[in-house]
Design a protein around this nucleic acid. Structure first.
Length: 787
RNA sequence: GCGCCAGUGGCGGAAUGGUAGACGCGCUGGUCUUAGGAACCAGUGGGCAACCGUGGGGGUUCGAGUCCCUCCUGGCGCACCA
């Protein structure tokens, strides 16, 4: 007996479950039920990702409160989930917006802070000046606030960060250990972490005390450096340029339409080339990223496309330092180094090593590793989130609260219709007397990014009522999650943050767990045909009728055009409501259809024919079991054993569509051979196998036939019955199939060849040629080669 | 532009390098009727046939949907990452 922690990504309580949830949870439920039948200790919890912006928006729109709205949605969605016959551990339920969840998150924050993994720094945010609030990137549309339409400003705010970059290397390396994750997700995370190995090089500014550092992956091209380019946000820019001039540069940059077009402003100082006795100009350039590397680069136009483009525009010298022809410029591939006295004749990697060694000796540079991954900003200027347990004094200093001072509860009485963060405006909640210093203090009014909530919920599930975040023993016993099932849209952020959390908590609490999710399965989305009227109005599928080969909107008689199948979305009105489907087709057919028509990791197109044929299958199976018993054929047991074997194999592979094929194959056989099993032992076995897929129907039939339910063990497979004794042996001539013969397994080659040569088809194929070779793959195939 | 994945009947999809198209949908013909969102039977890659068929072209192999090279098409991700 082993433990199986099977988890589906918990939903945001938006109000109603949608078909995507149904598919997600049915897939997980089939796994969970299978493992229970196998006798495993199964953990299969469900909860609510309950903080977040939609609740605040809904509260304003419907004149309610985020908490009331959220709780009522949870209640509704829970009742919807119960209709799906999901075998969930409801006693483990949690909602991240409840005190007994988020107060422990506040504890974890304190631990992270003490471990040096949480810190404060100034950072740019999207600021909506009209609403006086911060917007998420996806709420900024064409540079304007999604709700107000006001032009969004970049504003510097002091924000809390988690030091995920401390774990960049481990997060990257451990991807290789996640053998049961989709390659695609691992690739995306790898790119997101974005490790590059290179060098940091110091450029002295001529005539000044200052220097600047650049990061490069191509130190071998240092002799070809003909300019320096820095970001407009580089600290030297604000040091040497007047605010007015900086503003002008920024304006000029923002006016560029083609965002790839290069623009630069020459500064009135030069840098000294680190090796050559020459000076090179310094530009402020729009294509230099200020948040990557040092926010500064050296330009080597001969061997970098961007630098080349820039050099052409500003007529800067182009010096070849890698062997190539002029027509190849910019030449960015590997090659032999030239025009570089220290490293001439070397290959790229040899030259890199030698140059870096030289820099280190001369103390003008060093080997350096850079990551695209940035620290995780977790502050949100929002009411409906977990309060960050920090207070500020009037002198600007702050104190992270002690665990004994927790929880910091969200106040219920807030005004969400005012401008800005409701917590900031809640003077009574905000202003306190610090119990330690007796000084006036103000609470942190930012709340956590909701990705913090979802970074450890799978841990809290193990003991959702404990008076601390988690029990170390249970974490070590039940983690990692064995199968984690959810959408590909969480490939990066949620999964990376969770991996970071697991590792950080491991280090703080000395846990034995390195990774939170052993196997990740990303299910495909559900699509549906789209329908549009002539004037471009979307039409719901249930509004249309088919008449005389045309599609018509029933109530208005407008002509409707059918569009491609797309992800179900409210805006395109191609949504199918789970409640209606359950009403019309029942839970068993719905569950069958969720896995019928495509492999679970691919998209599933919703069709009326699809759900209907699932319904027909349900009825067919039910009908079958109630027919009066007949006797078995000699291969019946073998067929059933093979069915059990295949179902099991296909559940374990997540090839659930093949399970449906197995079910059809079995019943096709039984009905064609007129074998009816009724209340036989074999029926019992089959019903157990059906149970993970259609528990309601399986139980109903079991109760009728056996007066008992069938939550018994998964059938033991008699492996000897799986073995075939007779086979259909394909016979090829020159690798082409000519015929098949029925034979016993373990035939002797020379015996079987005798009879093969008697077959007319074979005779005519071989004709008068000589057989020069026979390939006998025992019990598989025979291939005859002639001259 | 870079990276990843995929291309198989009318459609969704099956095939540890060994009988391509399992299974389903749809379609065709038939049966039955307590007319149902049924059910049952037969058929269904193309071609009259020999044969031809897994996006195109090469290659490896006794044998390729599967492995290698190359091109085309589609989807997803990243996108000035120095």
């Amino acid at each position: 007996m082993s433990k199986k922690y099977i988890l589906e990504m918990f939903p945001y309580p938006s109000g109603n479950i949608h078909m995507g949830h149904v598919r997600n949870y049915v897939i997980g439920d089939i796994c969970a039920r299978y493992h229970k039948l196998k006798g495993d200790t199964v953990i299969h919890p469900m909860g609510w990702d309950a903080f977040g912006l939609p609740a605040e928006n809904a509260a304003i729109q419907f004149n309610t409160h985020p908490q009331d709205w959220t709780f009522s949605n949870i209640q509704n969605m829970k009742s919807q989930l119960k209709k799906l016959d999901l075998d969930l551990d409801w006693e483990r339920e949690l909602a991240t917006c409840k005190e007994n969840y988020y107060q422990y998150q506040q504890e974890l924050f304190i631990d992270l802070y003490k471990a040096g993994l949480a810190y404060k720094k100034d950072a740019l945010v999207n600021w909506d000046p009209e609403d006086q609030t911060v917007l998420a990137n996806e709420q900024v549309i064409d540079g304007k606030g999604w709700r107000t339409g006001a032009i969004v400003e970049q504003k510097v705010l002091s924000q809390w960060f988690f030091k995920i970059t401390n774990y960049a290397e481990e997060l990257l390396n451990d991807l290789d250990k996640l053998t049961l994750w989709p390659e695609k997700v691992k690739t995306m995370q790898k790119n997101w972490i974005g490790k590059s190995i290179g060098a940091e090089i110091k450029f002295q500014i001529v005539g000044k005390e200052d220097h600047l550092n650049v990061f490069t992956t191509r130190p071998d091209t240092i002799y070809g450096a003909t300019f320096i380019a820095i970001s407009v946000n580089h600290k030297l820019v604000s040091k040497f340029l007047k605010p007015n001039d900086i503003e002008k540069i920024k304006n000029s940059f923002s006016k560029i339409v083609d965002d790839k077009e290069k623009q630069g402003f020459l500064l009135d100082f030069n840098c000294k080339h680190p090796i050559l006795d020459k000076e090179i100009p310094v530009y402020v350039a729009n294509f230099v990223l200020d948040n990557y590397g040092e926010g500064a680069i050296f330009g080597c136009p001969a061997h970098d496309e961007r630098d080349y483009e820039f050099a052409m525009k500003y007529e800067l010298p182009i010096i070849k330092v890698i062997q190539c022809t002029d027509s190849d410029l910019p030449y960015t591939q590997d090659g032999i180094v030239i025009n570089s006295p220290l490293v001439n004749g070397l290959t790229k990697s040899e030259a890199i090593n030698k140059i870096v060694d030289y820099f280190e000796e001369e103390e003008i540079g060093k080997k350096s590793i850079n990551y695209k991954l940035r620290d995780w900003g977790v502050s949100r200027q929002r009411y409906w989130g977990c309060p960050i347990p920090v207070i500020y004094y009037e002198d600007g200093s702050f104190r992270v609260l002690e665990k004994s001072e927790l929880p910091v509860l969200l106040p219920y009485d807030v005004n969400l219709k005012g401008k800005g963060n409701a917590l900031l405006n809640h003077e009574k909640w905000r202003k306190i007397i610090c119990p330690k210093t007796n000084k006036i203090a103000f609470r942190e009014t930012d709340t956590f990014d909701t990705f913090v909530d979802s970074s450890w919920y799978y841990i809290r599930f193990l003991d959702n009522k404990l008076d601390k975040p988690f029990s170390i023993e249970k974490v070590n016993e039940y983690l990692p999650v064995d199968k984690y099932i959810g959408g590909i849209e969480h490939a990066i952020l949620h999964l990376l943050y969770s991996r970071f959390f697991m590792k950080a908590l491991r280090d703080i609490y000395k846990l034995k767990i390195n990774e939170p999710f052993n196997q990740l399965f990303t299910q495909g989305m559900i699509t549906h045909k789209t329908y549009k009227t002539q004037n471009g109005e979307w039409v719901m599928p249930k509004e249309i009728i088919f008449k005389d080969g045309k599609i018509i909107r029933d109530n208005t008689k407008e002509l409707v055009e059918e569009g491609p199948s797309e992800k179900m979305s409210k805006s395109k009105k191609n949504v199918i409501e789970p409640d209606e489907i359950l009403e019309n087709y029942g839970i068993d057919a719905t569950r069958f259809f969720m896995i019928s028509d495509s492999p679970p990791d691919r998209e599933l197109e919703w069709t009326d024919e699809g759900i209907q044929s699932s319904k027909n299958l349900v009825r067919r199976i039910e009908r079958y079991f109630y027919v009066k018993k007949t006797s078995l054929k000699k291969d019946t047991e073998q067929v059933v054993e093979r069915f059990i074997y295949n179902i099991e194999k296909n559940i374990l592979n997540f090839s659930l569509n093949k399970c449906i094929a197995d079910i059809y194959t079995l019943f096709n056989y039984l009905e064609k051979e007129k074998i009816y099993l009724n209340d036989s032992k074999i029926s019992k076995k089959i019903l157990v196998c059906l149970y993970p897929f259609v528990p309601k129907m399986s139980l109903k039939i079991s109760n009728t036939l056996f007066k008992s339910n069938n939550t018994t063990n998964w059938p033991f497979i008699n492996e000897t019955l799986l073995l075939e004794t007779h086979i259909n042996l394909p016979i090829q001539v020159h690798g082409k199939l000519v015929t098949t013969i029925e034979t016993k397994k373990g035939y002797l080659e020379k015996d079987i060849l005798k009879s093969i040569y008697q077959i007319d088809k074979i005779k005519s194929k071989i004709h008068d040629r000589k057989v020069i070779k026979v390939i006998n793959v025992q019990d598989k195939i025979i291939n005859i080669i002639t001259s």
